[in-house]
Simulated scan of single mutants.
Amino acid sequence: MLVLTRHPGQYITIGDDIVIHISDVQGANVRMAIDAPRNVKIYRGEIYEAILEENKKSAAQTKNVDLTELMKDK
Score class of each variant (00 low, 15 high):
Ser58Arg: 13
Asn29Ser: 02
Gln26Met: 03
Ile34Gln: 00
Pro37Arg: 00
Asn64Ala: 11
Arg44Gln: 09
Leu70Met: 07
Ala59Tyr: 05
Gly27Ser: 01
Val65Gly: 12
Asp16His: 10
Lys57Trp: 04
Pro37Asp: 00
Lys41Gln: 12
Val25Pro: 11
Ala59Met: 10
Lys72Trp: 05
Gly9Asn: 02
Leu4Gln: 04
Ser58His: 10
Ala59Gly: 06
His7Ser: 13
Gln10Thr: 07
Ile51Phe: 04
Asp73Tyr: 15
Lys72His: 05
Leu2Ile: 10
Asp73Glu: 14
Gly15Thr: 06
Ser58Gln: 10
Pro37Cys: 00
Tyr43Arg: 09
Ala28Met: 06
Met71Gly: 06
Ser23Asp: 11
Val30His: 10
Lys56His: 08
Gly15Val: 08
Leu67Glu: 12
Lys72Asn: 05
Ala60Arg: 15
Lys72Met: 05
Lys74Asp: 13
Arg6Met: 07
Ile51Ser: 02
Met32Ala: 14
Glu46Phe: 14
Ala60Ser: 11
Val25Leu: 09
Gly27Met: 01
Glu69Lys: 13
Leu2Lys: 11
Lys56Tyr: 14
Lys41His: 07
Gln61Pro: 00
Arg44Pro: 02
Glu69Ser: 05
Asn55Ile: 08
Val30Tyr: 11
Val25Asn: 12
Tyr48Asp: 13
Tyr11Val: 01
Val3Cys: 02
Tyr48Thr: 10
Asn29Gln: 07
Met32Ile: 15
Glu46Trp: 14
Leu4Ser: 02
Ala33Trp: 09
Met32Val: 15
Arg31His: 10
Lys72Ala: 06
Gly9Phe: 01
Thr13Glu: 07
Tyr11Arg: 12
Gly15Arg: 07
Ala33Met: 11
Ala28Lys: 12
Leu70Gly: 01
Gln10Val: 03
Ala28Glu: 08
Lys57Leu: 09
Val3Pro: 01
Lys56Glu: 11
Leu52Met: 12
Lys63His: 11
Pro8Phe: 02
Asp73His: 15
Val25Arg: 14
Gly45His: 10
Asp35Thr: 07
Gln10Glu: 14
Asp16Arg: 07
Gln26Ser: 04
Lys56Val: 09
Asn29Trp: 02
Ala33Gly: 10
His21Arg: 04
Asp17Val: 07
Ile12Ser: 03
Ser58Pro: 00
Asp16Thr: 10
Glu49Trp: 05
Glu69Cys: 03
Glu49Thr: 08
Thr13Val: 08
Ile14Lys: 03
Gly45Phe: 11
Thr68Pro: 00
Leu4Val: 11
Asn29Gly: 01
Tyr48Trp: 15
Glu46Cys: 04
Lys56Met: 08
Ser58Val: 07
Gly45Asn: 12
Gly15His: 05
Ala50Phe: 03
Asp66Asn: 15
Arg38Ser: 05
Gly45Leu: 10
Glu49Phe: 07
Asn29Cys: 02
Lys57Gly: 02
Lys72Glu: 05
Ile12Met: 06
Asp35Ser: 06
Lys63Met: 13
Asp17Tyr: 10
Glu53His: 07
Thr68Asn: 15
Arg6Asn: 10
Leu4His: 04
Thr62Asp: 13
Glu46Ile: 11
Leu67Gly: 12
Arg31Val: 08
Glu49Ser: 12
Ala60Ile: 05
Asn64Leu: 13
Asp16Met: 03
Asn39Lys: 14
Ala59Asn: 08
Leu52Ala: 12
His21Gly: 00
Leu67Arg: 09
Val40Ile: 15
Leu67Tyr: 13
Asp66Gln: 14
Asn55Cys: 00
Gln61Arg: 13
Tyr48Gly: 14
Glu69Gly: 03
Thr5Ser: 08
Ile12His: 01
Leu70Val: 04
Ile14Ser: 01
